[in-house]
Amino acid sequence: MKLPGLRLYALVYLLFLYAPIFLLPIFAFNDGTIIAFPLKGFTTSWFGQMFGNDTLARAVRNSMIIAVSSAVLATTLGIFAARAGSRFSFPGKGGIMGLIMLPLVLPEIIVAVSLLVVLLGMGMTLSVFTVILGHVLICTPYAIAILNTAFSSLDRSLEEAAVDLGETKWSTFRLITLPLVMPGIISSLLISFTISLDEFIIAFFLAGNEPTLPTYIFSQLRFPKQIPMIMALGTCLVLLSIVLLTIAEYFRRRGIARSGGKDTGGFL
């Protein structure tokens, strides 16, 4: 049965989802300090303003350090958990996996506040490092979700064949398992990077005086004069996310195709 109404609804819904993203570049190139219609003219000066801003440069550097470290650590932890979860059964598995996946549903403010209390209690100074601790926690569930698909679509007989042919456990993992789940790993790295780069609340609580990109953006949204530059910055960030996600999606699909699984679609 065909429902033309449903298709129309789906298209309108996509428009609703994309409306803010379409507006972003319009205002980033608009030659006016007020973010409203009618548009004034074309300019690239807002992009020029981004360079030469010292605080922004520091925020970018901090965010890059945080996002790369979080992505690597979360994916490493994700590999352990996804492998354990998809290959072995053990008592208490549900509870343990439940705890690891909990940040997926827990409000981020609860994660942020509880980590803040503990880290300050331990006498730690808030810095880029403390933000990484928090971001690893919230990126790991996403990494596991992606890696689970990669590990569970793995044909176990391939590994058994390698062991029968005299490979050790470790060399089997390195030569057989790792190459097969590599697309999943790359996809998980990119997704974790994107999540960390965009995360605000935890960085807001745990960064101390160090700016990250989202906390810098949040602090600037109060000043109307800064908004056009933030729109330009946002445009760059959106472009970066779309590129990273497209690469992640490419690897995710290739991974599924490689292990011969069926594409059920989508992250999460």
């Binding site: 803010p20 965009d198 960030l237 779309i242 679609g265 989508g266």
Partner: peptide, 15 residues
């Protein structure tokens, strides 16, 4: 599904 999830991954604050 990819189209639906893309806006979700772009800067939350700016959205």
């Amino acid at each position: 599904l990819f189209l639906i999830t893309i806006p979700f991954w772009t800067s939350y604050l700016i959205r």
